[in-house]
Design a protein around this nucleic acid. Sequence first.
DNA 1: TGTCCATGTTGCCGGCGTCCACATGGGCAG
DNA 2: CTGCCCATGTGGACGCCGGCAACATGGACA
Lengths: 213, 213
Amino acid sequence: MDIAVRPVDTVNMVEHPRAARRYHHGNLRVALIDTAVDQARAGGAEAVVLRDAARRTGVSHNAAYRHFADRDDLLAEVSARGMAELERRMRDRLDELPGAGQGEPTARLRAVGREYVHFALAEPGLFATAFACARPEEGAAGEGAYGVLSGVLDELVATGVLPAERRPGADVTCWAGVHGFAVLCLQGPLRDLPEQQREEQLDGLLDRLARGL
Amino acid sequence: MDIAVRPVDTVNMVEHPRAARRYHHGNLRVALIDTAVDQARAGGAEAVVLRDAARRTGVSHNAAYRHFADRDDLLAEVSARGMAELERRMRDRLDELPGAGQGEPTARLRAVGREYVHFALAEPGLFATAFACARPEEGAAGEGAYGVLSGVLDELVATGVLPAERRPGADVTCWAGVHGFAVLCLQGPLRDLPEQQREEQLDGLLDRLARGL
DNA sequence: TGTCCATGTTGCCGGCGTCCACATGGGCAG
DNA sequence: CTGCCCATGTGGACGCCGGCAACATGGACA
């Protein structure tokens, strides 16, 4: 129930005392997003179905329209959840490593890249939905999963591993590499690759990306 | 009408003399795929709608079921068309360049990569549909767009530009890089990048990919 | 205590994918 | 040339979906 991924919606959440059924749900918006996230996990964006989500949440269809303009609006929330979860896993992975600037600096870059792909493979539906949303979300610098990657590249510059003049564009290349690899594994020609070979290919990709920086 | 992209379906195409309406269409399968490709071009996979395709083709709904098991089956044909078109454009682009092994060898690699991205940006709906299909199509070596890329990398080995021991995995890295870049431009954080900056980023990506090989 | 409006409900519409029974007529056997 | 057959196309029906509109409920606040 208490999912780790959860943006601002939790604010103003009214925890009602009576757990029994009541006319006013009290927290329907968040509950619907939770259900929709489950749908997306199970079958990607196209599995997010308003009527079914309402049914599962124990509420009538149309109740959702008090909280979301339309299906795309709900989908956008699911997308945000997916993005947030991706970012969280990348940050968590980095936190497990020795602090920034010590140990092998490129190890942190490899770690975020690997975690990115692993998340996509572990949660294919949520990953796809995170990017399937057409809403132009705010891609502020330093924010989101993109920001995590950028931060690690900045560390590489700070520690002298990456020449500063090579920094511009490096984020796009790394991001494109791991994202493309993930997509190819999910729905492209690398779909049926056994796990071991996939890891080997991923290692090769990370090698080449690092070498090309 | 006579679209360049067209797989084996054209075989056994019966060109009837009377252009007027007739009970039996004579070439419905291909006509439906043509219409579905238009739909995909305009709005991606989710815009491929059986009833609407039949309507546009001047035939009743349900007629399609004589030629396709279900919607996914039609979608798979559209996907094949998209893949074939992508491959065709990449091959055409290579043919415009000096022959294999002469001139700058890496120029051919850059050319296919650039053409890959340009196709995705020029035909976003078709590109997305090409990869959105869940059907495990035969990814035989040397076939399809993947094969074009592989061929160019083989040329690099043959001309001594790329050490043979570095060849394994190089195709996956390059493919992932350009595919990821295309996807990020279509629906990711690079969506609203103006064309000039996009080309600069693409140049940077190709630089780094080549350097990392 | 009484009212109001945010929230949830029922009912409806058109559209879609898909199944079914039926209609048509081109091609082949005789 | 004639008549039958089955591949192909038609019309209708069902259940599901997204999305309106009108109505019901009851918590919050005066």
